[in-house]
Design a protein around this nucleic acid. Sequence first.
RNA 1: UGCUCUGUGGUGUAAUUGGCAACACGUCUGACUCUGGAUCAGAAAAGUUCAGGUUCGAGCCCUGACAGAGCAACCA
Length: 565
Amino acid sequence: MSEEKKNGEEVKTPVSFIEQIIIEDLESGKNGGRIHTRFPPEPNGYLHIGHAKAICLDFGMALKYGGKCNLRFDDTNPVKEEVEYIDSIKEDIRWLGFDWDDREYYASDYFGKLYDFAVDLIKRGLAYVDDQPADVISSQKGTPTQSGIESPYRNRSAEESLDLFERMNQGEFEEGTRVLRAKIDMTSPNMQMRDPIIYRIIKASHHRTGEAWKVYPMYDFAHGQSDYFEGITHSLCTLEFEVHRPLYDWLIDQLKTGDYRPRQIEFNRLNLTYTMMSKRKLLELVQEGKVSGWDDPRMPTLCGLRRRGYTPESIRKFIDLIGYTKVEAINDVSLLEHAVRDDLNLKAPRVFAVLNPLKVTITNYPEGKTEYVSLINNPEDESMGSREIPFSREVYIEQDDFMENPPHKFFRLAPGAEVRLKGAYIIKCTGFMKDGSGKITEVLCTYDPDTRSGAGSSNKKVKGTLHWVSAEHAVDAEVRLYDRLFNHEDPAGQKDEDYRNFLNPESLKILKDCKVEPSLRTAEPLDKFQFQRLGYFCVDYDSTKDHLVFNRTVGLKDTWAKINR
RNA sequence: UGCUCUGUGGUGUAAUUGGCAACACGUCUGACUCUGGAUCAGAAAAGUUCAGGUUCGAGCCCUGACAGAGCAACCA
């Protein structure tokens, strides 16, 4: 058990069932007290936050217990895999904060060994070439409740299978005409054991091995053995591979020469409300233009979350919070949002930005005068210092911060009401102007010179404090307000309805006329800020010196919005 | 009508391996505040899917139900 200090007391943080097993294995001296894990992505798409859960476990356990974690690309299917994905996967793992040193492996590194093992199985009568087409093999498999029947080719001679397998690999036969199958048990209640296909003919070029092979191992034939070849002690994977474990064990039984064997432990996959993790469906969103790309800030991909303004720390914290069990759960996004707020609260400098500007003219403030007021950059962290921002006769405030006919408990600006402009003066509303449509176009106020922050002689207190930006000095910006991509908690889990029907039409609102304080002029992509009273925002990749673009990571808790509901 | 796995507040996880069901998020109060943020104090909320059994004592062990998930790609 790990312990951490809290309020001077020792608080035990629970460890997952997986960690308990690892601790037991380590203490019993299994594998010489060694822990070695691996993260095995298929390079056929971008990593999402569900992968982060696996990454944090695979790398995290190795790190915590002085072991190693390999990065291994499961590249057994050349028709679906691309180099483009390999680079993004490596970038995302590093961004999350993990490192595999020089242990970057590929299942394709083992094609030779796997082929030899397959040949060995054939010679030992444990594998055979089946000449039947896919649909026939499939129908002979039976169903979960009905056992399968044996292929007519099951008992052909080892010599014949061997000859055919070699010729399959020489390109003599077309794709789909022959496969190699393990000879296990067609009547097994576990369908994985009903003579699974272990090799198939694929004539596509492989990103690493080129044209060298015409037969490729199935995942089930590559995965467990790859772990074995690399000396992996704990193979951590998700629940759906539970029923594959007996097959992996069977294969390792045929392969192993000593006591060592990887131990597979399955845990629950990450599910998040209002989104989905299916790589295939995420790809559809990209291809159909429902989002701008894999790194659209609404995507649950790591590159999307990064662009949205999430920090690696916040994602790791979230993963830590949800834990690893065998229960299929659906986690509330609000916990993820809590994790970013919690992290950014300590790190993000506070700035003033007005999203929907409303001009306020302070009628008793001298025209042409500018004074600079000092603002704390982060009340949670004194070391972040302070900055000066300009104040003048005309400022912008948020449209929401003024109401002509305010309801009870509205602490902001209204006719006759007083509020503080944060860091500056207390102002009083003396009038306002409307256009023909009834829209408020300008608010008139007077200020009290004795109330300047820090320096004023007045002890006047007001209920409301507003953020603001000096009109003359304001910098224009575009702000993209992101919300959940789907308006259904479990968009992909509805049997009778397509997930596309649950796309949230309001998941992106673009505001083009925002006004931000001058200090933001030099902000660089991915810089993070708290727009005071609004939320956390980060600079988008589209941002330039002349055209600032911010993404809303997450809003601040909004008690007023809650009261208003 | 097979096999495997899983059932603990609204949600996600704990429970020193048989000893008063705890924590976090969320929700609701209140305090404080030049962010209706943060922080602080407090509250509501499960008697552990159900029924038996063993035991002084069961969320943990046993039996039997019930419910949910996974498994029938030449995908991973």
